[in-house]
Design a protein around this nucleic acid. Structure first.
Length: 670
DNA sequence: CATCGTATAGTTTTT
DNA sequence: CTATACGATG
């Protein structure tokens, strides 16, 4: 089990007598350390798997880790092992402690969009605000939650009129969520953390459940996650955290890389192990990465090295326009592929902002190069999926007014604004949800009876579906739901072409199928429809994506999205001032995080690395000339091979080479 | 209620 | 420039 590890990694695995910080550079095998350590704890130390928890940030990381651990531990011995995201762990804590927290079964989880809609609504009602500031408010509220500031605290702390307004909206927002029997993403961490802080007996219970804790990507933890970890670990210090301060690229989201340094204050006996051997990249790439990141201040110095040879020069390609830049990358990938040098999947094109993907996408299409675009509009942002999710959420939680309002008239049930207004007044007066108001109302006068009749018909129908869910096969019941409302017909009415409508309907059935798989898997023996729907909201499915990963496609993604991945050949586009250090970061003076972003990009490359930049760029319709990124100056000059900056002879030669390749391509095409 | 037109903004986003 | 969102109009 330990034989595949290097001495430092072994040390990190075997040290279990106290808190441990593993400073793991990019590509240094940190996942191996975590997975092997879990196996070591179970197989060698005889600690029961059910007392071990490993926490990550993404579902993908959690899935991968779980798979690798179960391969190391004999199946049965892995029972009860917790490998999950922070949010999932929080969700499970809230579920188990639901009663004391005052939530009803089947509570909903609001994603950002739900939350934003709610905040907008509250601002409109309370302030008469047009909601233009809603995003900012949402951001502030999120930050408050990440810092464990309750609404009461916020009101007490508020100094300026602006802060008072935010605090009031925060307070209203939190109360409304409770009334909807719902929580948002930030609550999934904050609520358990506050619960543990205020209820020692509950904390003790969880401490005896989780006797050893491992945390991945610790540099990305925010204050509430930090406190959750600290409370859960308690004075025992049975903790291993793995992180890399140089890969902290989410500080704008509340991540505090300082949590790495502060660990030694919380645990004076903290042991630190550095992993500096890199198993991913050629030496030259690491040299460049090291030299770049050396420009950032460091509490603990770290220098990556590898035994993989020095590798090809790092190319810097300067083109005259953004169009030429994208064209250049596309043709180069194409020709390399035609020369059988590499599969398409071996290439990644990384960029700072999502909008940069458009041009390269276009060029790849023109050359018929298959590509996969990560990020962008997600599956869950699609309207049909949001409708479907609203139905599912309402099904498991009738108090979810947000979901109710989304679908009450989709498809049309002739329930318009005036009916809803009446219903809303009734519900607010009696402090009940819109859904229960539907069935309650009508016993008395209030609204004209045909309107009430429509509302009651709706609730009776959904009640029936809900009953079928409990008694019979829930999947059948859900299929019945979508057939009953004839969503397909509604789609056909609202889509420009029948093909699009069919595709959207297929998305719905894909969603239902994911639910089915989630229930069928039944790992914990208690995955019911409620849990399955919640999993969907937390985006924990994506079987289809795995299939897509198998296919041979060029990978297009932001630098942020590339963290944790690796590719033989990497292109980083837009290496220009105001772009890679991004303009707003320059203004805010946050160059260090931009440098880390560049560092993350560089360290994704295994064999070759190329930067591209354009000397002129069209921005919002107007042409601007742009300067090369300052980060290029921070790289070792002797390892860079410039193109488009003097050095004519070399370039002419290369241009000729490209022409020859284009000729070859024509030959192969015909 | 739907569609068309104009106004407006335009980093990153694991859950 | 282009995508999106909201408002006015039929």
């Amino acid at each position: 089990m330990l034989s595949k590890l290097n001495p430092r990694q072994k040390e990190a695995v075997k040290y279990i007598s106290g808190p441990l910080l593993v400073l793991a550079g990019a590509g240094s095998g940190k996942t191996s350390v975590i997975t092997t350590k879990i196996a070591y704890l179970v197989n060698t130390c005889g600690i029961s798997a059910k007392h071990i928890a490993a926490v990550t940030f993404t579902n993908k990381a959690a899935r991968e880790m779980k798979e690798r651990v179960t391969n190391l531990i004999k199946g049965k011995n892995a029972r009860g092992l917790i490998v999950s995201t922070f949010h999932n762990l929080g969700l499970n804590i809230i579920r188990k402690e639901r009663t004391i927290l005052g939530f009803k079964p089947g509570f909903s989880i609001f994603d950002q969009q739900d939350a934003l809609a709610l905040i907008k609504d509250l601002m409109l009602k309370d302030l008469g605000d047009d909601g233009g500031l809603a995003e900012q408010f949402q951001n502030i509220i999120s930050n408050l939650k990440n810092d464990l500031v309750t609404p009461e605290d916020a009101i007490a702390q508020a100094a300026s009129p602006q802060e008072i307004t935010v605090a009031q909206i925060y307070s209203r927002y939190q109360r409304t969520l409770k009334a909807y029997n719902a929580v948002d993403f930030d609550d999934l961490i904050m609520i358990p953390a506050l619960l543990f802080q205020n209820h020692p007996s509950i904390l003790e219970k969880w401490q005896s459940r989780v006797r050893y804790l491992l945390v991945d990507e610790y540099q990305d933890t925010n204050t509430s996650q930090y406190l959750l970890v600290k409370l859960l670990v308690g004075i025992r210090g049975a903790l291993t955290v793995v992180g890399d301060d140089d890969q902290s690229i989410y500080s704008w989201r509340g991540a505090r890389p300082e949590n790495l340094d502060e660990l030694s204050k919380d645990y004076p006996s903290l042991k630190v192990v550095k992993l500096e051997q890199n198993y991913r990249s050629a030496g030259r790439i690491l040299k460049a990465a090291n030299q770049l990141i050396a420009n950032n201040p460091h509490a603990i110095e770290k220098k990556l090295w590898s035994e993989l040879g020095y590798g090809d020069p790092i190319r810097v390609i300067k083109t005259r326009s953004e169009d030429a830049e994208a064209e250049r990358i596309a043709t180069e990938i194409l020709t390399k592929h035609l020369h059988k040098k590499a599969e398409y999947r071996d290439f990644a094109v990384l960029y700072r902002g999502n909008h940069q993907a458009k041009l390269i996408e276009l060029k790849l299409q023109a050359h018929q190069v298959p590509y996969k675009l990560s990020g962008g509009t997600s599956f869950f942002a699609r309207n049909e999926i949001k409708d479907a999710m609203a139905y599912l959420r309402l099904l498991i939680n009738p108090d979810d007014d947000n979901a109710f309002l989304r679908i009450i008239n989709v498809p049309r049930r002739e329930i318009g604004p005036s009916t809803l207004e009446g219903l809303g007044t009734y519900a607010t007066e009696r402090n009940v949800s819109l859904y229960s108001a539907c069935s309650e109302m009508g016993l008395e006068q209030g609204l004209a009876s045909p309107k009430v009749e429509k509302l009651r018909r709706f609730t009776h129908w959904l009640d029936k579906i809900s009953e079928n869910c409990e008694r019979n096969d829930p999947i059948d019941a859900i299929k019945e739901l979508f057939n009953d409302i004839d969503y397909e017909a509604w789609l056909h009415q609202h889509c420009s072409s029948p093909q699009i409508a069919e595709k959207r309907m297929a998305n719905i059935w894909f969603l239902v199928d994911s639910l089915k798989q989630s229930i069928d898997k039944d790992e914990d023996g208690e995955t019911g429809i409620k849990e399955a729907v919640t999993k969907l909201i937390l985006r924990d499915l994506m079987e289809r994506q795995e299939e897509e990963d198998e296919s041979d496609k060029v990978q297009l993604m932001t630098l942020h999205a590339a963290k944790g991945l690796e590719f033989p050949h990497v292109y980083i586009m837009g290496m220009e001032e105001e772009f890679l250090p991004h303009r707003s970061s320059i203004e805010e003076g946050n160059i260090e995080e931009e440098r880390r972003l560049a560092y993350v990009g560089i360290t994704r490359a295994k064999q070759t690395l190329a930067f591209t930049l354009a000397s002129k760029r069209k921005q919002f319709g107007e042409v601007h000339s742009s300067a090369p990124s300052r980060f290029l100056d921070e790289l070792p000059d002797e390892d860079l091979e410039w193109e488009g900056r003097g050095d004519e002879s070399k370039e002419v030669k290369q241009a000729r080479g490209r022409e020859a390749l284009a000729g070859l391509k024509n030959l192969l095409d015909s």
